[in-house]
Computed example of a mutant assay.
Amino acid sequence: MERIIRIGKRNAIYIPKEIADSLNLKEGDRLVLVVKDDKIELIPVRKPSKYWAEISPDEVEEVGEEINKSLGVNS
């Protein structure tokens, strides 16, 4: 999808509504701006929908104690 847009006051770039809607962009979302050669690329920063793993604080402490023990460190 291509559109010609204009740079506004204070160098603001406005993303057309249909493009923002198609990418599910909302006010306050963050974009990475990449400049390469004579091109500008905008890439949405997405929050992960799922984390790789979930662990409890007790599990973190247990692993920390195991590491300290294997290194001979007194906790």
Rank of each mutant, 00 (worst) to 15 (best):
W52M: 09
G8Q: 11
V35N: 12
D38I: 06
R10G: 13
Y51N: 03
I7Q: 05
D29S: 02
I4D: 06
L31Y: 00
I4E: 11
I15F: 05
N68G: 12
S75K: 11
I43R: 00
L71C: 11
G64L: 15
G28E: 02
E18M: 10
I4S: 03
P57Q: 14
P44A: 03
R46M: 07
Y14L: 10
K47V: 10
K69A: 15
K26D: 01
I67M: 07
R3V: 15
K26Y: 00
V73S: 06
A53H: 08
L71G: 08
V34I: 15
Y51K: 07
N11V: 01
K47N: 05
N11G: 01
L31F: 00
L23H: 01
A20M: 04
R46E: 06
K17C: 02
E18F: 08
P16D: 05
I7H: 03
I19T: 04
L31A: 01
L25N: 00
R6F: 04
G28W: 05
K9H: 08
K39H: 09
N11C: 02
K9Y: 09
I15E: 07
R10E: 15
P16W: 05
S49R: 10
I40V: 14
I15V: 04
N24A: 06
S56C: 07
N74I: 15
N74A: 11
P57A: 13
R46H: 01
V73F: 09
K26G: 06
R30F: 07
V32G: 03
D37V: 06
I5F: 01
Y51P: 03
A12G: 07
G28M: 03
V35R: 12
Y14M: 05
P57W: 12
G64P: 07
I55S: 09
S56Y: 10
D21W: 05
N24R: 10
V63E: 11
D37T: 10
P48M: 11
S49I: 08
L31M: 00
V63R: 14
L23E: 00
I15D: 05
A53S: 12
L31D: 02
M1K: 07
D29T: 07
I5K: 01
A12L: 06
V60M: 10
E62L: 11
L42T: 00
I67Q: 04
G28Q: 03
E18K: 14
A20K: 06
V45Y: 05
K9L: 13
S56V: 08
K26W: 01
N68I: 15
D29R: 03
K47W: 02
I19G: 02
I40F: 08
E18T: 15
N74V: 15
I4N: 08
L42C: 00
W52T: 14
L31E: 01
V35K: 14
S49W: 08
K36W: 09
N68D: 14
K26V: 06
D58I: 14
R46L: 06
G64E: 13
K26P: 04
L71F: 11
I4F: 04
